[in-house]
């Protein structure tokens, strides 16, 4: 694809601006800002990746992955605002999920520890874990709020805070994992995922692209499960005192 066709394809954004204007959605400004951010960020990342791939350094690769985790943690923490230390909990959970999955992939020989492989794979699993752990903490917050009476019933019967939160933990973890599981069910039929589309556009044989997509699906599921589980277990404690009292 040459630069001219890219510039022309950017005119497609005008359609969304027109619809927003016509329907008085009032999001024209956000579309413009979003588009500009996308261009700037992607260009920037393109050059950084170019440099990191070229340098082929373990240190740079890890630094890039850590940066992605922190940005993801920061973003997802907004969904859990009000929970003390939620940024740390989410960041730790995403890091934990990503670390286990990446280690497994490398041990299994599915990918190699090369920036070209580690960075895009990390991006996908971290992005997915960001969305799902954000969902988990926001649901946890809602459930604690709406189920105070239920939680106090458990506590009054001599349950500790963990036992009293058992049910809402289950709900919150499930909420975080559901989109990933649901999308797994329709994969290939309703949606050709971005990664696979990219490979096919880049000239990779669809059969080969599918193999990668399967791996991506599995790794996203594991990372999401680990991240949601961890963040729920870390966060619920913030709703209780050490004397098992609901705050």
């Amino acid at each position: 694809m040459n630069v001219l066709s890219l510039v022309m394809s950017s005119s497609l954004v005008l359609i969304s601006i027109f619809i927003s204007y016509y329907q008085k959605l009032g999001v024209e400004k956000e579309i413009v800002i979003g588009s500009i951010r996308a261009i700037v960020q992607l260009t920037f990342v393109g050059y950084i990746l170019h440099y990191i791939f070229y340098a082929n350094s373990i240190l740079f690769t890890l630094a890039m992955v850590i940066a992605m985790i922190i940005v993801a943690g920061n973003n997802a923490a907004k969904r859990g605002s009000g929970i003390p230390h939620v940024f740390y909990f989410i960041t730790i959970s995403i890091a934990f999920g990503a670390a286990i999955t990446l280690t497994a992939l490398i041990l299994f020989g599915s990918i190699h520890f090369r920036p070209q492989e580690v960075i895009p794979v990390s991006g996908m699993i971290i992005g997915n874990a960001m969305v799902s752990s954000g969902l988990t903490v926001s649901r946890l917050k809602d459930e604690v709020k709406s189920r105070r009476h239920e939680i106090e019933t458990y506590l009054a019967l001599g349950a500790n805070s963990r036992q009293a939160s058992q049910k809402i933990l289950k709900i919150a973890i499930k909420t975080g994992m559901m989109p990933t599981i649901d999308s797994m069910k329709t994969l290939g039929i309703v949606q050709l995922p971005g990664m696979m589309t990219g490979l096919i556009l880049g000239g990779v044989d669809p059969v080969n692209a599918v193999k990668y997509q399967m791996m991506v699906t599995f790794m996203m599921t594991s990372t999401t499960a680990i991240a949601c589980f961890t963040v729920a277990l870390l966060s619920y404690t913030q709703f209780f005192t050490k004397n098992h009292q609901l705050i």
Binding site: E152, T153, L155, A156, L157, G158, N160, H244
Partner: peptide, 17 residues
Amino acid sequence: DIIKLRRRIGMVFQQPY
């Protein structure tokens, strides 16, 4: 011990859960 205390002191609410 708070857990033991709560077992010794039962509580019943208006709308039982």
